[in-house]
Structure formats: C-alpha cells, structure tokens
Write a protein that binds this DNA or RNA. Structure first.
Lengths: 233, 233
DNA sequence: CGTAGCCTTGAAGGTGATCAATGTTTGTGG
DNA sequence: CCACAAACATTGATCACCTTCAAGGCTACG
C-alpha cells in the first residue's frame, strides 16, 4: 500500500464525508494511488472498466471523440470527484468516455471487485454516488441550455463555472492549466474562435493569462457576459 | 386507488423487472395514476419536488428554458421511464427541469415519502435507478458529441434514436406526435432549419409525415446521414 | 367560423468554421 | 545546456451554414 494513502484526508472527500472513518479502508480495498503526468491517459472509451477511481490531486478530463476525431469534453474532474463510479453498475462495464489528466495529477484506483463487495450493497454510499451523478447531470444540462446562445456566453459560463468549482477560497486564478483547445472542445467550438474571444477580453482587462494559468480579473464582467447582459461593443 | 394500476403490468417496467412482485405495492404506496392531456404540464423547473413518477403510457418531455425563453429539450420519456427519481435524493428537492406530456399520456405519481421509506434504503432499487440515470447520462453525452457536427447529422441521429427507443417491433412510425419545433429544441436549432431538412428528406423518400406522425421509410439512408456518410447532394 | 398551433417558403445577414501562415512556449535527448 | 521537436497561441481572409425576419397556408377544434 502506498504511503500517500494515509497522508491524504480521504474521509474528507465529498463521497465519504460523514461516514464512519473506520469503514473507509474497506471501501478502498485494493486501491492504489497512481500518479499521472500531464496528458497521460487513464483509460479510453470502449475499454472494459476494471477499475473506478477517486481524484486525489490535480485534474482530469472526461471526453469522447467524434467521427472525425475531434475531442468533445464532457467533464472536468477535480479532487474528490469519482471517475467511472457509475459504469460499475453494469454487468460487463465499458467506459463510456476517455479520461486523461490535465497537469500532473493523482487518482486512487480501486478495482471493480471492491465496488461489488463493499459499495454495491451500501445504500448510503449508493445515494452519495447518485447525488454526485445527479449534480453532474444537472451540470451537463446547464451546458445544453447554453447550446444555442452565442459563443461568448458559453465560454464565459465555462470559465466562471470552472473558477467557482476549482478555486479554493477567493483565488481568481484557475489552478489547472487548461488550454484554449480544451475550452473549445468543452463548449463545442474551434480554438480560433475561443482565442479571438479571450484575446478581446484580455484587452479589456477581464482576463489575464500567464504560463497557461488563466486569471479572471473581472469576474463581474465575465458573469455579465455569461448572462447575456454584455454591453454591446 | 384507480383501477388502472392493476391493469398495467407494473412488474414488467424496467425498474421493477426481476423484483419480487409482492414487494411492488410497497414501492408505489400512495401512487396515483394521472392522465395528462397533450401539452399538459406535470411540473415546472424550480418547483419543490414533492413527487416522482413512472411513465405508464404515452410520452413526456423534460426541458428547460434559456434566458430568452426558448425551450431546450433534455429528454423524451417513454413508458417505464422514471421521472424525477434522481432529484429525490436531495434534502429539499427541487425539479431541475420542467415536464409536460406529448400527446395524451399517463404517469404513476408517487409521493416523496414513499421514496424515503421504501426506495432510499433498498440497494437493489438504488442500483436500478442509478443504471437508468447512467443510461440517460450516456445519451446526453452522445448528443454533446454531435454538437459540432452539421445539423443534418444531429436531426438524423435524433430521429433514428427515437425510432429505436419508441417503436415496438419493426414499426417505422414514431408513435408519438413530435413537432418540428420539438425536434429543433432537442438538437439546438431553429424550426425553420429543421423543416428545410425534413422537407428535403421527404422529397427524397426518406421520410413521410402524416397527421404529425413521422414515418421513417428509409432508415438505412437516415443512418448514413447520421454517420456523416451522406452522399453529397 | 375563427383562432391557435403547426408547417412552409423566401430573402438577407451574421456568427463562427475553415484554411493558412507564423510566433511562442515547453519539453526532450544528445 | 543547447537544439530541435511538439504543443500551444495568434492573426487574417474567406466562406458556408444556419439564424433571423417576414409572410402565408394548412388543419384541428371549441
């Protein structure tokens, strides 16, 4: 067992919160902490799902490729997020999405066996998983509602959401090195379009990018744009 | 208790399949079958979720409205689908979507109490619900992947999916009166664009519409379009 | 028989895609 | 530590797809 497991406050992860700490070892039995480098692939859509995982550090993206190979990003995972927890329910589970890390990251990789043994019959845990799934669902629905709105609205929404979810405290810098390509893949647009928008916003002092770290200087204005109240330029 | 409840083979609904038939009455305690007319609203996004429901007959759409009031359709529900089952897990649940019927339909409306009493601690049922939720998630992800592809691909995909999901047997007519506006709201486009496409397809003998019933004559060609293999016109 | 909901068609215009070229940063191996 | 490659960022020109706006027709139903 890797020592890192003890070092991390597992019982503070959202899906374990409130549980009897003594029951946790059972839930992560066979779990191995795995570090991944930037852009390293954890698994690919279509592979058999032999493990699920909990994000410990960094960030991961869940995505799929369309016919022409373009990536479509479904979700950005931050510490505490379960990965592949939902697919475990199936008999012969197959990952519906691919997963790769953004920046150096770490997951706790837990064999499916542990799921069937310790999770599948624990109503409390199942409700927890359900709830996280529900939130992810609402989130993806939020994005769908935005589908018809102008690109500026979608990008502004994404950035605001990421800032809210990722940043601890009142930090205004996204702690994850997200590229403009990834932003484009997430909102369903091209890099060029995203760049044009963000360049404009940088010029207006709303954003600032340094070493791939995106700083949101004027969250208020970004939210205005996200809500379609942007003053006509 | 309405007599219709006994008339319907509840134990054949996907979420009850395989359960001990004797346990079912407990699961639908307080449930009332409710008929709804075409376009009747079952609940609105933002309302407190006092009930969940199972679709018995007909169809329902789950949707949300964007800033400017446009509808965005998240899901079409067919018989057996649970409605609002996921949101039940929250403390003070609030519907994340609105729901209205398409054509005359019927649901079994079950009070939240029954959920907390009979469902919340039943691991088997929770897994079932989880699984249906999972499928809905995969489906909405499928749609997101299509987001960047041409409208023709998205509409063709939707029609093919609906046919597959809704039609019993090898029927080629969608048994639900879906309007072009609803198709547009589902794929994130305007009515006019959808009409132009479908008119063209009707001209080519792929589709046929009569009394708002859409018949898919050449599923093979529709699938070609959906897969981006459409011969250049 | 009139209204409401749905379908249709046309013309004009814009948002964002595509293509192409170039600059910049990061990472890697000799 | 330098050189080279790979990944990322940027800018401009052109063009297509789809939206928007407008007007009119069809069908169902109270």
């Amino acid at each position: 067992m890797p020592s890192s497991k003890d070092a991390l406050p597992l019982n503070e992860l959202p899906c374990f919160k409130g549980l009897d700490p003594k029951s946790i070892p059972e839930l992560i039995q066979g779990g191995i902490a795995r570090s991944t480098k930037h852009r390293e692939v954890l698994f690919r859509a279509g592979e058999g799902a032999s493990h699920f995982a909990l994000v410990l550090l960094g960030a991961y993206k869940l995505f799929r490729n369309d016919l022409s190979g373009h990536e479509s990003i479904m979700h950005f995972c931050s510490p505490g997020d379960p990965i592949g927890g939902l697919v475990m329910l199936n008999e012969s589970p197959i990952y519906p999405v691919s997963c790769s890390s953004i920046g150096p990251s770490m997951v706790l990789r837990i064999p499916r066996e542990t799921w069937t043994k310790a999770w599948a019959n624990n109503a409390h845990l199942l409700r927890r998983v359900n709830q996280m799934l529900y939130q992810r669902m609402v989130h993806i629905q939020d994005e769908k509602v935005l589908q018809r709105l102008p690109l500026a609205v979608r990008v502004a929404s994404l950035l605001a959401t990421l800032l809210e979810r990722y940043s601890r405290g009142s930090e205004s810098v996204l702690p994850v090195p997200i590229t403009r390509q990834e932003i484009a893949d997430s909102v369903g647009a091209t890099v060029e379009s995203v760049i044009r928008l963000m360049s404009e916003w940088t010029g207006e002092g709303i954003l600032h990018t340094e070493a791939r770290q995106i700083e949101i200087i004027r969250l208020d204005r970004l939210l205005q744009i996200a809500h379609g109240e942007a003053p006509v330029t």
